[in-house]
Amino acid sequence: MVSRFKEALGSGKFVITSEVAPPKGTNLEKMQHHIDLLKDKVDGINITDHQSSAMRFPSLGGCLAVLESGGEAIMQMTCRDRNRIALEADLLFAYSRGVRNVLCLTGDAVVVGDHKEAMGVFDLDSLQLINAVHALAGGKDLGGNDLDGAVEFCVGAIVTPEAQPLEPQLIKFEKKVEAGAEFFQTQAIYDLDNFKRFMDYARKFKTKILAGIVLLSSARMAKYMTANVPGIFVPDDLLDEMSAAPKEEMLAKGIEIAGRTIAALKNETICDGVHIMAIGREETVPDILKAAGM
C-alpha cells in the first residue's frame, strides 16, 4: 500500500491538506466529525501531536481514526515527548497500521503548554527525525541494527517563510531538503508578495511546498497572532479588511480571505498546494474550499 498523499504530490495537481486536533480526553466524537467532514475533500489530514505542548489524545490514535474512516492521514510527530527509541517504535507501529505519511517537527517547548514541569526530551531534532525515518525505511534503526520489516513513509517538514531573521530558517530548510523532506507545510502566510519571493528561492529545490493557510476568525485574533506567534505576520491591509467587517460577519470575511488566497496560489501556480489550519473551526474548511472555487 503506497501513500495516496505522495501520489497526489507527484500528480502535479494542486494538493490540499488540512488538520484536525485530537481531543483532551477519550470522547472522540468531535474529532471524528471533523475527519468525516474533511476526508473526501482533502488529500491528507494532519493530526496534531499535543499541539502547543498541551497533552491530548495522541496523533497516532487520530491517524488510525482517519484511516478507519477511509481518509489519508499525515502523522505529525514532534521530538518533544519521546526519545529516539520511542519515536522509532511509534513509526514502526504507525506503519504497521497503515499510516504512510509523517510530518517531522521539533515541537514546541514544554513550558508553553499545560504540563509546565514536564521534561522536554528533544533527544532528536526535526532534521534528525527525518533521517531516522529514512534509516528505518532502509531497514536499519538508529542504533545500526537490522529491522525485520522496514517502513515506507512520505516524509515532510515545516518551514517559516515569514521568519525574522529568515536566513537561519532557510539554512535549516535546505538541510531538511538534503535529509530527504519530500514536502513542506509552511507556517501561515498572508502576504503573497513575500511568499512569492520565498517560492522563487524554494523552487530551486526538489521538494513540494504547501502554503500554510490559517483562517482569520476575527480582527483581534489576527492582531494577536501578528504580535505573539513566531513567524506569523498579517499585513495591515488584511487587518483593515477584517476590522471593517461587522462583528457577526468577521468569520465570513476570514473565510473569504482564506479562499481568495488559496485561489491566487493555485491560479498563479505559486506553490504546489495548501495546508489549511482552521484551528478549532474545522467545520469551515469546506466553505474555505468553496470560496477558493474548489
Partner: peptide
Amino acid sequence: KGLVNGPCGGT
C-alpha cells in the same frame, strides 16, 4: 531545546 542543527520555528 538544546538543538544542534539550527533554530526551531519558535524563534
